[in-house]
Design a protein around this nucleic acid. Structure first.
Lengths: 111, 111
DNA sequence: CAGATTGTTAAGCGTCCACTTGACTGTTGC
DNA sequence: GCAACAGTCAAGTGGACGCTTAACAATCTG
């Protein structure tokens, strides 16, 4: 479950469309391919990327493979982004506090 | 500010390292390059990708370019992932409710 | 069984990507 | 002025990516 693979998987608009489709419930490979402007083989390749990233699981029964979302990968990526963003915003807040306490630079630290 | 660009930017470990470094405060191009095992020119190219994605802003004063994080891009990507994940989890919850209300399949919808 | 459906696999093709080297521009400090 | 510094730009390279076609395997249906 590497962030490399998850972010790379989700960087492609076709793969994001597949993820969005799977949000509304499991689907077969053909179901996923039907609205997409490319060959079935191409969709299978996208699914391999998604499955390799851990975002999607699938099982084959008979001749149809059913794909469904696995939220763990989404959560890991989400957490990384959230952490970076909040770290940065918290830092800006603290910086704001310091500037508010000491508005003029020609004044000593302990007035 | 396209998700394509943001996710692609953050799919590379070098660029994620740069983002993490910028979390702790602004830095010059050379500062960012120092710990990285590649040429300055390569780092500049990574910064162009990050800047093109909206994750990083920079300004040049004198001969030094100072880079800082822009949380808006992080937030957009985070929101997309969060939306997909919660949509899916909410769906599973509702499915669980239905199964709990109607445990046996040979029973009518309105007992 | 014959034929249609569902998917898998491999090869090929053009493009994009990460990185390098080298030449070059503008800035700062002695 | 000149040397060191900070960064930029352009061209080239090897590999990964997205997609196609074509041949194939397995399963279901009449």
């Amino acid at each position: 479950m590497s962030l490399d693979r998850v972010f790379h998987a989700v960087a492609d608009p076709t793969r994001r469309a597949i993820v969005e489709r799977l949000t509304r419930g499991p689907a077969s490979v053909s179901d996923l391919a039907r609205p997409l402007p490319m060959s079935l083989a191409a969709v299978v390749q996208h699914l391999q990327v998604l499955e390799g990233s851990g975002l999607v699981r699938s099982e084959k029964v008979g001749r149809v493979r059913t794909c469904r979302l696995d939220p763990a990968g989404l959560r890991a990526a989400e957490d990384w982004l959230h952490g970076r963003r909040t770290d940065w915003e918290d830092r800006l807040d603290r910086l704001g506090d310091v500037l508010a306490d000491e508005p003029r630079s020609d004044e000593g630290a302990a007035p």
